[in-house]
């Protein structure tokens, strides 16, 4: 059995969670006030994930906010940063458009969180 005290990051409430990884691989969560909290704690004990928010360079030299549409495995965050920083966006995008599809094979898209259309 493996017990961990966690601070939930799902919403600003920041619930204090106690999560127990049972011998059969199941997770018991206490202290959460919503379903998302339980899911968060389970993921933390089995395979932690994070939403990445950053910016991507554009062809006119500005930067555009982007984020992963869903959380990605936590250990891939810096690798994903490298992939985003290697890119120069040269096609117009608006909110929600895919900037990098299936980033690092995670099945999660990196999407635009802004508008860029200053194509020369």
């Amino acid at each position: 059995m493996n017990t961990r005290e966690l601070t939930c990051i799902v919403c600003p409430r920041g619930c204090q969670l106690t999560a127990v990884l049972n011998d059969d691989g199941s997770v018991t969560v206490k202290g959460n006030t919503c379903k998302r909290g339980e899911e968060y704690a389970k993921a933390e004990l089995t395979h932690p994930v994070r939403t990445l928010t950053t910016t991507v360079r554009t062809a006119d030299g500005s930067v555009l906010p982007v984020r992963t549409a869903q959380p990605i495995p936590k250990e891939l965050v810096f690798k994903a940063m490298k992939a985003v920083n290697a890119l120069v966006l040269d096609r117009p995008v608006t909110f929600g458009d895919v900037v990098i599809a299936d980033i690092l094979g995670t099945g999660v898209d990196l999407i635009a969180a802004g508008i860029w259309n200053n194509v020369k």
Partner: peptide
């Protein structure tokens, strides 16, 4: 916020 200590510092 507690969540920011967690995800911005502890991580």
């Amino acid at each position: 916020l507690a969540r920011n200590i967690e995800q911005c510092l502890h991580d």
